[in-house]
Amino acid sequence: MWRMPAETAPHDRTWMAFPREGLTLGDSDAEREEGYATWTAVAHAVLEFEPVTMVVDPSEMTRARRMLDSSIEILEAPIDEFWMRDMGPTFVVDPDRPGVLGAVDWIFNGWGDPAWAEWRKSARIGRIAGEAAGAEVISSLLVAEGGGLHVDGAGTVLLTDTVQLDPRRNPYADRAGVEAEMLRTLGAERAVWLSRGLTRDYDEFGTNGHVDIVAAFADVDHILLHDQRDAAHPDHEVTAIIRRELEEAYAADGRALRITSLPAPATLRDDDGIVDWSYVNHLVVNGGVIACGFGEEAADAEAREILTEAYGGRRAVTVDARPLFARGGGIHCITQQQPSTPRV
């Protein structure tokens, strides 16, 4: 049976996609340069800990080769979006077949096919990247994105009703059907369903409730939870609801749950409204954690300390993620880990 390891399991590499011109990158030269620089900064931060493979659109090959460290492997392929967690494969292993890597190729429709989205080229990346990694490609008929799920590696997956059961994604799905597909593809025997995600994620350019911005497994039965402590922000109530849902789900199964709060930064708004800045949207790498930074020195430092302790002393480094969040995501959203495959 296929199984998705926890993000804390050893990685062979991290996959990313280099930005290309279009709506997401921005209209002005300054916006575009900011986007290129931020994706590059994340790639170089990851490279300190493990290899990186970057999918690059043919139109951006010259720029990518100029900006990226020469040790970063480049896979040239047409793309129109570059959120690798969502458009790319979800990598899995088969404990019964040592050395075998799998790649779940979900259907990607640009987070529900909104009018603004360009996604048809990127919808092919799950298979392209999976084959390039030497994986067995596991086709799925479920519209899903990697940011919409999080596993503990021991059979539990976190999901949200407003993503998996979104009528723009899966109009005929129900919880039982989704859970059956999570079992088949990820080896998840138990789903913990959350009712929603953070508030801004429901605006025109949001994902409609991705879980990887609000909750993440640090270990089995240990969840890192976004904690908006300012009652003036609507996510103050949202995070209280999610905490209660998590506690009730684990209590119903007779399992003890440890929740570690990751306090939100102090900033409540940007030019487009309330923010969803979250330290939960980090990437665990071999020996480290790539953490989102928001230009708030004390809050960023506190997040690093919490992440270091939660992950058993891994070294946490911060990359300014404000340009990512302004475009609709964070560090976890633009990366995808490829787990090491167990060998005899």
Rank of each mutant, 00 (worst) to 15 (best):
L198M: 13
L198A: 01
T199R: 11
T199A: 15
R200L: 08
R200M: 07
R200Y: 01
D201A: 10
D201R: 05
Y202D: 04
Y202W: 11
Y202C: 13
Y202E: 05
D203A: 13
E204W: 00
E204C: 05
E204S: 07
E204A: 15
G206T: 02
N208W: 09
N208Q: 10
G209R: 12
G209T: 00
H210T: 03
H210Y: 05
V211E: 06
V211M: 09
V211I: 15
V211L: 03
D212C: 02
D212N: 10
I213F: 11
I213Q: 13
I213G: 15
V214G: 06
A215H: 07
A215C: 04
A215M: 03
A216I: 10
A216M: 14
A216E: 13
A216C: 12
F217K: 02
F217E: 08
A218G: 11
A218Q: 05
A218C: 10
A218Y: 03
A218L: 00
A218R: 05
A218S: 15
D219F: 06
D219K: 06
V220E: 14
V220F: 08
V220T: 15
D221K: 04
D221R: 08
D221L: 01
D221H: 02
H222K: 05
H222S: 06
I223D: 06
I223S: 10
I223T: 05
I223R: 08
L224R: 02
L224K: 06
L224G: 07
L224P: 12
L225M: 13
L225T: 06
L225C: 07
H226L: 11
H226F: 06
H226V: 10
H226P: 05
D227Q: 09
R229G: 08
D230P: 08
D230Q: 03
D230W: 08
A231R: 14
A232D: 13
A232S: 13
A232Y: 04
H233W: 07
H233R: 08
H233Q: 11
H233E: 12
P234W: 03
P234Q: 09
P234I: 05
P234T: 10
D235S: 04
D235N: 04
H236Y: 15
E237R: 15
E237K: 11
E237S: 12
E237L: 13
E237D: 15
V238S: 01
T239A: 03
A240Q: 14
A240L: 14
I241T: 14
I241A: 12
I241G: 04
I241C: 07
I241V: 14
I242P: 05
I242M: 13
I242E: 08
I242G: 09
R243K: 13
R244C: 13
R244Q: 14
R244Y: 00
R244M: 11
R244D: 14
E245R: 03
E245F: 01
L246Q: 01
E247M: 10
E247D: 09
A249Y: 04
A249P: 06
A249K: 10
Y250S: 11
Y250F: 14
Y250P: 11
A251S: 10
A251E: 12
A251F: 00
A252M: 05
A252I: 00
A252C: 07
D253V: 02
G254F: 02
G254T: 04
R255I: 10
R255A: 12
A256Y: 00
A256G: 06
A256P: 01
R258N: 09
R258D: 09
I259D: 03
I259Y: 06
T260M: 11
T260E: 11
T260K: 00
T260Y: 05
S261D: 15
S261E: 15
S261W: 05
L262M: 09
L262K: 01
L262P: 00
